[in-house]
Structure formats: structure tokens, C-alpha cells
Lab assay of single mutants.
Amino acid sequence: ENVVSAPMPGKVLRVLVRVGDRVRVGQGLLVLEAMKMENEIPSPRDGVVKRILVKEGEIVDTGQPKIELG
């Protein structure tokens, strides 16, 4: 899985990584606000952040790609 998608609709509060960052499985990639709760979205695997496809403040839909890992 190279693309991390939104598990639920919500607002991107914070992006916790930058392009080029090495990430580990379970590491937080971003914080999504859904139903007035903050949810940290974890990396599904070890890898390197290739692209960030969302911006802080953006509203995302379920299944929308957010971060691409290499």
C-alpha cells in the first residue's frame, strides 16, 4: 500500500511529516478531526514520504488519498 487514504471524512488539522521523511509503521502521519474528535492517522508500513496530497485545514472524504509512501 503506497497511498494512505482517509478512513473517515473530516478536516486535516495537522500534517506531522514532510516529503523525504522516513516513517515507521504506526508512526503518526497527520491529525484528522472527525465528529469533534482528533484522530492521528498512522503509517501502514515503513517507508519514505514521497508526496503529501492534502493541506492543513482541508476537508477530506472517506477513501481520499492523503499521503504517498515510497
Score class of each variant (00 low, 15 high):
residue 56 E to K: 09
residue 16 L to M: 09
residue 23 V to A: 01
residue 16 L to R: 03
residue 6 A to V: 08
residue 9 P to I: 09
residue 2 N to G: 10
residue 2 N to C: 15
residue 22 R to A: 11
residue 54 V to T: 05
residue 46 D to M: 07
residue 42 P to E: 08
residue 47 G to S: 05
residue 21 D to P: 00
residue 22 R to Q: 11
residue 13 L to S: 05
residue 31 V to G: 00
residue 9 P to H: 11
residue 28 G to A: 15
residue 33 E to F: 14
residue 48 V to F: 13
residue 41 I to W: 05
residue 69 L to W: 06
residue 46 D to T: 08
residue 51 R to C: 10
residue 50 K to Y: 11
residue 42 P to T: 14
residue 4 V to M: 05
residue 44 P to Q: 05
residue 20 G to T: 03
residue 27 Q to S: 06
residue 48 V to T: 10
residue 32 L to F: 12
residue 59 I to W: 15
residue 53 L to Y: 13
residue 16 L to K: 05
residue 63 G to C: 09
residue 59 I to S: 10
residue 20 G to S: 04
residue 20 G to Y: 05
residue 50 K to P: 01
residue 50 K to R: 12
residue 23 V to S: 01
residue 35 M to C: 13
residue 46 D to E: 09
residue 68 E to I: 15
residue 45 R to A: 10
residue 36 K to F: 13
residue 32 L to W: 08
residue 37 M to Q: 13
residue 40 E to K: 08
residue 36 K to I: 06
residue 63 G to R: 07
residue 64 Q to S: 08
residue 68 E to S: 07
residue 44 P to G: 04
residue 20 G to A: 05
residue 13 L to E: 02
residue 39 N to E: 10
residue 19 V to M: 05
residue 31 V to D: 00
residue 24 R to K: 13
residue 56 E to I: 13
residue 21 D to K: 02
residue 54 V to E: 02
residue 28 G to T: 15
residue 56 E to D: 08
residue 5 S to L: 14
residue 21 D to S: 07
residue 51 R to V: 09
residue 60 V to N: 01
residue 61 D to M: 14
residue 35 M to Y: 13
residue 12 V to S: 00
residue 34 A to R: 07
residue 2 N to S: 13
residue 19 V to I: 10
residue 11 K to I: 11
residue 30 L to I: 12
residue 33 E to L: 15
residue 54 V to C: 08
residue 48 V to M: 09
residue 31 V to H: 02
residue 6 A to K: 04
residue 16 L to I: 06
residue 15 V to C: 06
residue 26 G to W: 04
residue 28 G to V: 15
residue 43 S to M: 01
residue 5 S to G: 08
residue 68 E to D: 05
residue 19 V to G: 02
residue 1 E to N: 14
residue 62 T to A: 15
residue 55 K to L: 10
residue 16 L to Q: 03
residue 58 E to F: 05
residue 65 P to Q: 06
residue 8 M to F: 15
residue 48 V to K: 06
residue 17 V to H: 02
residue 13 L to M: 08
residue 27 Q to C: 05
residue 66 K to N: 15
residue 10 G to V: 07
residue 65 P to D: 07
residue 34 A to S: 13
residue 69 L to Q: 01
residue 25 V to A: 13
residue 29 L to T: 02
residue 45 R to P: 01
residue 55 K to G: 08
residue 69 L to I: 13
residue 4 V to W: 05
residue 25 V to Q: 13
residue 4 V to N: 03
residue 55 K to F: 11
residue 56 E to N: 07
residue 3 V to I: 14
residue 11 K to V: 11
residue 64 Q to W: 08
residue 25 V to Y: 12
residue 38 E to D: 07
residue 63 G to D: 08
residue 25 V to M: 13
residue 46 D to Y: 08
residue 38 E to W: 10
residue 24 R to T: 12
residue 6 A to D: 04
residue 63 G to A: 08
residue 52 I to E: 01
residue 10 G to Y: 05
residue 44 P to L: 06
residue 49 V to R: 01
residue 11 K to P: 01
residue 9 P to A: 13
residue 7 P to V: 11
residue 40 E to N: 08
residue 27 Q to N: 03
residue 23 V to C: 06
residue 69 L to R: 02
residue 45 R to I: 15
residue 29 L to F: 02
residue 47 G to H: 02
residue 45 R to F: 13
residue 37 M to W: 08
residue 30 L to V: 11
residue 64 Q to Y: 07
residue 15 V to N: 01
residue 70 G to L: 13
residue 17 V to K: 00
residue 18 R to Y: 06
residue 48 V to E: 06
residue 23 V to G: 01
residue 26 G to P: 00
residue 52 I to C: 05
residue 39 N to Q: 14
residue 23 V to Y: 03
residue 57 G to Y: 05
residue 52 I to W: 03
residue 23 V to I: 08
residue 24 R to E: 09
residue 44 P to A: 04
residue 50 K to G: 05
residue 56 E to G: 05
residue 5 S to A: 11
residue 58 E to I: 04
residue 16 L to C: 11
residue 31 V to P: 00
residue 28 G to I: 15
residue 17 V to S: 00
residue 49 V to C: 04
residue 48 V to H: 08
residue 25 V to T: 12
residue 15 V to M: 08
residue 51 R to K: 12
residue 23 V to F: 02
residue 70 G to H: 14
residue 64 Q to K: 06
residue 61 D to N: 13
residue 61 D to W: 13
residue 51 R to H: 09
residue 57 G to R: 02
residue 61 D to R: 15
residue 17 V to N: 01
residue 11 K to L: 10
residue 2 N to D: 12
residue 10 G to M: 06
residue 41 I to M: 05
residue 63 G to L: 07
